[in-house]
Design a protein around this nucleic acid. Structure first.
Length: 431
RNA sequence: GGCGCUAUCGUCUAGCCUGGCCUAGGACAUUAGCUUCUCAAGCUAAAGACACGGGUUCAAAUCCCGUUAGCGCUACCA
């Protein structure tokens, strides 16, 4: 049975890079029908925070990476101590007085050659001459990362260690410890790093880095996972948008790229749009409703779900994020709409009292108020006035929505309703 | 500095293992056009890459060596 793990340190929120590591581990477990273990590496008492643990668990759950087992290193200090003392007894380690007064346990590194066979990169050779003696237990009695990691991976029977390639240099040190402890060495696979726009590590300056930020902005977990997957793996056949279950069938760890990839927000936005377009309007409405409540656009309980579904359909192909809907469709929910000043200058500076009044009159005379009837009455009017449709469409749109962009005007009028349309147009009619 | 990893359009990649089908394919972004009431979406087109230098070979993006560049590690952080 394959067993993999994701081992985040709760010294910050789950970020893009971490979630990608989690994705590949979870993905591999799915592909091989193995187990996905979550291990919280909270050995650094100063920097670890419960708030981060909560956020990491929450984000992982949101992404759908369900773990089979979870462990906390802070609860396992006794185990690390025991194994370190064993090495001490066997003469493989020694103690040294630390600066803080306590005794550190240090592993004595002997010169030798270590070869690891990376599943993604192939053979990598190291000479331990360049590796210093390794601290196992610090003088404050807490274990070091490399030691706790090895003890845990062995005890948790991890068969494949899949992690970022910033750990390649740690690997020979860890192999040394596996051998010293008499544990079987697992397989290793080092994933390429994800870089920010400027080439360096992904940082907050380049944009949002935490998964919860992407969630807040309205990215779908499926789209994010699909994008992250594509950053270092390709399903072939020029496919980009791929269902996660199907990708699992096609996936082979050997096909993962070796090169670091730059994170591109624009492509992520495109990917999200692909998913947003495909998703069922009912489901999309369900995702949007909490957002609309939060904005105060709809009440907690008294809202017309069917109406929202209709509006969702109007905007669906235009959305890059869920937030876009709240931004673009605000005029359907807010009575006192904000008119874009440039739009007003461009389209409403001319006196259109006569045209607006006539159009309102037509709308009032309609017995059947539907999209087709609205359009027909409008077309008739411009014909009679002998003007081009567009010269009137744009000003009306700005008066109704406050924007120059948006769905088709006649749909907007239909869903806005006769009364609101009338009120918003009459505001521009001079008495 | 030492050790290690990497190197195809601006970006993500296909091709590389198993040299010829590569005049290097696709996607994002960009530009132009079509459609249209605007913006999206959709469709069409354009522009755009094998880091460099040596080999090996009839033939190299593909194999080998070197250089350069980028990144990582070099903690009693993880």
């Amino acid at each position: 049975m394959i067993r993999v793990r994701f081992a985040p340190s709760p010294t910050g929120y789950l970020h893009i890079g971490g979630s990608r590591t989690a994705l590949f581990n979870w993905f591999y477990a799915q592909a091989k029908r193995g187990k996905f273990i979550l291990r919280i590496e909270d050995t650094d008492k100063q920097r670890s925070k419960q708030e981060y643990i909560d956020e990491i668990l929450d984000s992982l759950g949101w992404l759908g990476f369900v773990w089979d087992e979870v462990y906390y290193q802070s609860q396992r200090f006794g185990i690390y101590q025991e194994h370190a003392e064993r090495l001490l007894k066997e003469g493989k380690a020694y103690t040294e007085k630390g600066v803080s007064g306590g005794e550190a346990i240090i592993y004595k590194v002997r010169p030798q050659s270590i070869t690891i066979n990376d599943l993604i990169r192939g053979e990598i050779k190291f000479d331990t001459e360049v590796i210093k003696d390794q601290v196992l237990i610090k003088s404050d009695a807490t274990p070091t990362y490399n030691f706790a990691c090895v003890v845990d991976d062995a005890l948790m029977e991890i068969t494949h260690v899949i992690r970022g390639d910033d750990h390649i240099s740690n690997t020979p040190k860890q192999v040394l410890l596996y051998q010293a402890l008499g544990f079987a060495v697992p397989e290793f696979a080092h994933l390429p790093l994800i870089l920010g726009q400027e080439g360096g590590r992904l940082s907050k300056r380049t944009g949002a880095t935490s998964i919860s930020d992407y969630r807040k902005m309205g990215y779908l977990p499926e789209a994010l996972a699909n994008y992250l997957l594509l950053l270092s793996w390709s399903p072939g056949d020029n496919r980009e948008v791929i269902d996660i279950q199907e990708a699992i069938k096609l996936f082979d760890i050997k096909d993962v790229n070796k090169t670091a990839a730059t994170f591109d927000m624009k492509k992520l936005a495109w990917m999200n749009n692909q998913y947003l377009k495909k998703i069922d309007a009912q489901k999309l409405a369900d995702l949007l409703i909490p957002l609309l409540k939060e904005k105060g656009y709809i009440g907690q309980d008294n809202f017309d779900r069917h109406y929202i579904v209709c509006l969702v359909k109007l905007f669906q192909s235009r959305l890059s994020t869920l937030e876009d809907f709240a931004d673009w469709a605000d005029f359907f929910f807010v009575e006192d709409i904000r008119i874009d000043s440039q739009a007003q200058k461009d389209f409403l500076s001319r006196d259109l009292s006569e045209e607006f009044r006539l159009f309102v009159g037509r709308l009032e005379g309609l017995d059947k108020f539907d999209v087709a009837a609205i359009e027909a009455s409008f077309r008739e009017l411009v014909q009679e006035l002998n003007i081009q449709a567009r010269t009137l469409i744009h000003p009306i749109r700005v008066a109704l929505t406050g924007k120059t962009i948006g769905p088709g005007l006649f749909e907007v009028i239909y869903y806005l309703g006769k009364e609101r349309t009338k009120a918003r147009l009459m505001k521009w009619v001079k008495k």
